[in-house]
Amino acid sequence: MKGVTIDKAVRKKLTFGQWLNTDTVSGYVFALPFIIGFSFMMAVPMFLSFYYSFTDFNMLNTPTFIGLDNYVRMWNDMRFRNSVSVTFRFVFLSVPVRLVFGLMLAYVLTRKTSGVHFYRSIYYLPTLIGGSIAVALVWGQLFQNQGVINVVLGAFGLDGVNWFGNPNNALWPLIFMSVWQFGSSMIIFAAGLKDIPETYYEAAEIDGANKWRVFFSITVPCLSPIILYNLVMQTIAAFMTFTQAFIITGGGPADSTNFLALYIYNHAFNWFNMGYASAMSWVLLTMVAVSTAFIMWTSKKWTFYANE
């Protein structure tokens, strides 16, 4: 009780400046931009978009509540169903390969290789420039009928592939492009590898374990929290893929690369079906959330933390 009264007495004596400098006030002041941003640029828009998903809003009319109509329409929309399946195919085919490449090259590069810095920079470069329009334009040309890829295939006596004319093939150049950008996961893996105690490897060597055994019994388990992190982040990013498809294929041919993000974009900003697009973006959000939750749930079985 006494402490409280003294505390109160002290607090009364605080000048405005001193009050401003208390932990609580300073903390709030410095966090204020984020708090405002989170509330008004994230939370409120999320609720708004949830609301719009039950309306027929098209930017010109006043939104009318139409219940679940948008969601029913989605169910019957074959283009939507197709874009969900295209998106999942892309995620399943690109993310694991990307992570495997990232992990392998990080592993090869950590062991006292001189010039690590140089190689890492080169491997990271695609990640840095890969999102640009310039690279997307170039990538499209690599897979032209007379492009470099078909020339190389020809040199091995294989037939050139009609990459962008055939719906069965068009997804592949985009998957390759995504795999090409394994650099950021590689760098994160490399940082994790540095933290694995050398003694583990020494112990394994004494026990006579071979390289593969060491990799799968020591490296992978020790790295599993980082694998989890990369898997989650890369999966979310892959679900959002937009620019590459927009520039390189425009979603075609025959919707074979019509990613959900692209389809939502077209409904929202070309056709101004804001209600329908909002509903679809909530489905995408749910897909991302469920996938993340699923990964987290399975991770209990395959991630190990050093302090356990």
């Binding site: 999320m46 978009s49 719009y52 973006s281 995408l284």
Partner: peptide
């Protein structure tokens, strides 16, 4: 994912 906010924003 950013797309969730793009439309309302």
């Amino acid at each position: 994912p950013g797309i969730a906010f793009t439309i309302p924003i």
